[in-house]
Amino acid sequence: MPTFDLAECPLRDLNRALHEVTEGSNDITFDVLNPRGAHAVAVGVDAPIRVDVHGSVGYYCGGMNSEGVITVYGNAGPGVAENMMSGTVTIKGDASQYAGATGRGGLLVIDGNASSRCGISMKGIDIVVKGNIGHMSAFMAQSGNLVVLGDAGDALGDSLYEARLFVRGSVKSLGADCVQKEMREEHLILLQDLLDRAGFTDVSPNEFTRYGSARELYNFNIDNVDAY
């Protein structure tokens, strides 16, 4: 089990080692010590490896992750799991702004709070936040699921496309074209699966409210044809 102490070795050594993992590699579990807020820890992972980061990280941790299972035992700076493709990124503390931005797949779990713009422009990623999320979360979110066990800040889901938003607590305000929607059986099943996968087994999907797009903003309105 390779260990990288970032107090001793450059970040590039770690990321290079992670990128060099190929099918059949024996070392597929990595420990990272003393990240001390470093940027770009474990970005571009492209193999089913496990990376445990012991401490808080800075910008873009786990960015572009594909298949990796990355756990941060600390807080994460801006843009954690940005553009994730698949795999799982778990933050045991809080995450800063735009967590999971533009993510295309995989699961991002945040045990603490996420700040502003969580899931901005998400395109298929699933994000589960145990605490609260900040303002302008899921802005222009296209697909995927955002689950919040706590409260959501201002302008949730502004200019939303087809992502599904599930909030257990209060929502300070909804953004343009984001509306409350009926929770149907299919949503309860979907939500139960997301909660199970995130490891949050003591809450019921029935406690959540679903929000989604009213589809009035992004669809062409035939009444506007004269404008063209």
Partner: peptide, 21 residues
């Protein structure tokens, strides 16, 4: 950034948070 704070005494057990807008 958090990086700026890592050498302060007792930072490991400090209350660390992002100030609200």
């Amino acid at each position: 950034e958090y990086r700026a704070l890592v050498n302060l005494p007792g930072i490991e057990s400090a209350r660390v948070w992002e100030p609200e807008p």
